[in-house]
Amino acid sequence: MANKLSGLLKVALLVLVYAAVQFLEGRGILLPYHVQILSLCCINIILVVSLNLINGFTGQFSIGHAGFFAIGAYLSAYLTVKLQLPFIPAIICGGILAGLTGLAVGLPALRLRGDYLAIATLGFGEIIRVIILNTDAVGGARGFSGIPKYTTFGLAYLTAIITVVVIRNFVASDYGRACLAVREDEIAAESLGVNSTYFKVLAFALGAFFAGAAGALFSHYLQYMAPTPSQIGFVKSIDILIMLVLGGLGSITGSVVAAIVLTVIPEFLRGFAEYRMILYPILLMAVMIYRPSGLMAGRELTLKGLTELFKGAKTRAYHS
């Protein structure tokens, strides 16, 4: 009963946030520019949470997430611009192609471990970028312009919620436990009947699917895609990684908070962009040295935890 109640409470809260944004926008308190940033927050949440599935929960180390993002962004844009497909099917197609690519890349690449896998995924991401750079149908080096503005805050918000819920459910199911086992000790996991390759590839493909969906939302948000490292290359991958690491590997709420904070803050510090790029790496290194599990330390922020915090009680919520 209590479970159902807290579930309802969560839904109510989520609806309330949406209603509040709509209301404030209607009254002109939130400018379109602000709502844009909120949409971007949602897109980044999808990216970070989906990378968390691969890096945080399954213990793999991908720094090629932007590759999947790029596939979703370009394929969906191609479908809506050239084939006049409606947006939702285009998002799903973008996600599916990214997921299939994840499958195709994951099968061989996931035989590698740790830092080798990292470099291989980075290489894969760059290969995707070079392919896009050489594909005239999507604009090649000139970039892809004239993409319709289909991404609304509501759609980005809904997709982010779906991503978070699906990945949370995945992690809390037997499938997710198998991934955790692979992360903790691959040999022990295997000896318990867990096919480690299967679960690595599954996590990789699922993560790639959501990254592709985020890409679709992004290209129809910015209306222009450029095949540059900072938009679809390793710089983008590392941006996502920074959010993930600061929020904490293995914490979904940590990813959400970090994605929002690190999307909003730079918007306020536009004049200090150069210093931000110095501050971020220092922050990243400091977190690794002093608090390697990230700000959330693998824990989750829960409603129950919050209320207990207010009551002054100690929060103790591991992976719940």
């Binding site: 199911s173 037997d174 436990r177 955790l180 903790e184 022990a188 318990l192 009947g193 591991y318 992976h319």
Partner: peptide, 23 residues
């Protein structure tokens, strides 16, 4: 001893039920 040290005892055991899961 190869337990999953960062997971709860209960989760360690639940993981091992993997091959019997049907959903």
């Amino acid at each position: 001893i190869r337990l999953f040290n960062n997971l709860s005892v209960l989760d360690n055991l639940r993981i091992a039920y993997h091959k019997n899961r049907r959903y």
